[in-house]
Design a protein around this nucleic acid. Structure first.
Lengths: 201, 201
DNA sequence: AGGTATACGTACCGATCGGTAACATTGTCA
DNA sequence: TGACAATGTTACCGATCGGTACGTATACCT
């Protein structure tokens, strides 16, 4: 009476692996309160697992933080590419869509900026696992923004791309500094003004 | 032979009080490595004093961090007002001077952004002594930037002022994320483009 | 010289940090 | 049934965390 009912695979009925639960909880706590502010004990407690389970899935807390950021990276590019895909061949509209979304997110009550940016602030030391992931993400973002600026036909595409990056990072930070009603809500408008000025040169 | 020579008061000849040495060392370590990353033991060790001396001058580490930021606040406004004083009655030139200076600072090797911004990222909790100082500084900066945008005659002064704040915060963060050669070096140029676009509307 | 207040140092506190050793328990599959 | 892999349990490690009780030195004023 037990071998005839795997209508669902065992893998699917099995509750989330310990590593997955840990990463899910860590992601939430790290983002909302910061990586340094959260101890491994609190993570395992909220995840309903024990500490050895954490260290069987992750070699260290620093690597757990890096894993959190790698997942964050995937979700970030998913959002980015979603805005891109919504306006094929129109980089200016792509930027506008992406920034409009950022501007809205910054107004939400529990917004705490960009996990990548925050991690880099928390870990200034070069070579730290979390910082490595964060820097790679930002390098790639810069590359793509400059490419989009060039595709718009900007005279100085690198400057415009960098200007957009400054506005975006400013929105991330201002969002968590000022909360709702802060300067971040105008990021899309300001980016559009900057693009306009950079094109008619 | 001892009562006739107080040409200088005793207070002045005395080597720096423990509290001052502590604050000087704490300021340096907090800025370069972050507040959470530095323990009170390291502060007192590098300052050449002992821990009770720290807690006689400051009620807690959090308050020491707040004192560090209050001093940072004074120096920040000194730099800001210096740029303002250099171009009386010309807010656009004042902004340009201030941002040019920021752009240069971000290219220095040991640049680590704005101490205020970093502290707010490290302490997301509302009401934390360090965060309170940081938020007050940013609120005032926003107010002044908006006022300067209005003085420039911008159609939508609040949007322009906020846009400048976004660029500034973006420069702070990008400066420590990318190091020399990063997007922050173009902050003055992008701000000028944004101003230009905002005025001719 | 003596009193007094201020500043400083030694030694210590309990709590928490990230991380681990050793072993028991469970479910899966052959 | 028996082997295996994953997880849980318990207890522990040395280091560091922020913070303090308490005694000692120094400088000044009378």
């Amino acid at each position: 009476m037990k071998s005839i009912e795997p209508t669902i695979k065992a893998d699917e009925v099995t509750p989330p692996r310990a590593g997955e639960k840990i990463l899910r909880v860590a992601r939430d706590l790290f983002y909302r309160q910061g990586i340094r502010a959260i101890g491994v004990d609190e993570i395992v407690r909220r995840a309903g697992v024990t500490k050895p389970s954490l260290y069987r899935s992750f070699p260290s807390k620093d690597e757990l933080a890096a894993s959190y950021l790698r997942q964050y990276d995937l979700e970030f590019w998913a959002r980015f590419d979603e805005a891109v895909a919504a306006h094929p061949g129109d980089p200016r509209a792509q930027i506008a869509a992406f920034l409009t979304r950022i501007g809205k997110r910054t107004q939400k009550p529990d917004y705490r900026g960009c996990g990548m940016t925050n991690a880099a602030v928390e870990y200034p030391e070069h070579g730290h696992p979390a910082r490595v992931v964060s820097e790679a993400n930002k390098q790639e973002l810069r590359r793509r923004l400059r490419a989009m600026a060039a595709a718009m036909g900007a005279g100085d595409a690198d400057t415009l791309g960098d200007g957009l990056l400054l506005l975006i990072e400013g929105a991330y930070i201002s969002g968590q500094l000022f909360g709702a009603g802060g300067p971040a809500k105008s990021v899309a408008r300001n980016a559009d003004l900057l693009i306009e000025a950079s094109l008619q040169k």
